[in-house]
Design a protein around this nucleic acid. Structure first.
Lengths: 135, 135
DNA sequence: TTGAACCGATTTAATTTTGAACCAATTACC
DNA sequence: GGTAATTGGTTCAAAATTAAATCGGTTCAA
């Protein structure tokens, strides 16, 4: 068996993700948001503050500011000042935001799921376990 | 066991990659190239034409044009018109390009490898196998 | 051959993304 | 208390990215 090459695994994974992203991009934008805005939307409930979103998604803060502004303008999130810390802006998914997020996730699940379909259910579970360990 | 959720696996993987990328970014730029330029560099030998690079890395063609121009200006790749098809520009890694690519890959391997280190050798091999099936 | 369709790459112009500087609120510490 | 350091978020100007149009070169069908 050949020696494990992290860069090779990296490259496989990187190209996989990029390929899936670009395959769904046009359908996602048809929903009225950019792909990366969708990623933000999917994390809003677990990480309801812009700074948290920036950290978990590894995005610069000004980028999050822009996305949140657009998501708010589109009516997908609502913002309110956190009473306990007036610097913080707590974000809430609106019903429209939840709906569009679910549609976006469905597109992603469909595209990525069709790749995952090449694996058995056990292998998919194994992949998830491995990725969780890496996270 | 819970039902397999492609979007969940997706999200784990996406955040993992972004996190690794941003952790190496500053060291990579210290080598004299941008992170994405490094990705291009690593694929040049297997895919020596810009159009191929764009396809395998899921990048728009103009983006590749820009990166290749910079890599050429930095002396990391050489370009020559393909004699068999005058539209195509065959790319070659220069010795300096190979060196910087190896350094960049080492950084990436180090950063990603430290995550991979949480897995046993068998699990790493398994991950690679799974990702190859998905690619 | 010819010319219509196609393909590889680039240019241009517009949009997206981000580093740096900033402001306001909070925290830590004397 | 006071004030220095930190944190959440934004602004602004600059840089990166890309869609659309373009230009040669190639292919293919007649």
């Amino acid at each position: 068996m050949s020696k494990i090459d992290p860069a090779k695994i990296w490259s496989l994974n990187y190209r996989l993700l990029m390929s899936v992203i670009s395959s769904v991009a046009s359908d996602v934008t048809a929903l009225g948001l950019e792909t990366k805005e969708l990623f933000v939307l999917t994390e809003v409930e677990e990480h309801p503050y812009p700074a948290e979103l920036a950290a978990t998604l590894s995005m610069p803060k000004p980028t999050v500011t822009v996305y949140v502004k657009r998501l708010e303008a589109a009516g997908f999130v609502r913002r309110e000042i956190d009473a306990a810390d007036l610097r913080r802006h707590r974000l809430h998914l609106t019903p429209a935001g939840r709906k569009v997020m679910q549609r976006g996730i469905a597109l992603l699940s469909e595209a990525f799921g069709s790749r995952l379909g090449r694996l058995s259910a056990a292998q998919q579970a194994e992949l998830r376990t491995l990725l969780e360990k890496l996270s």
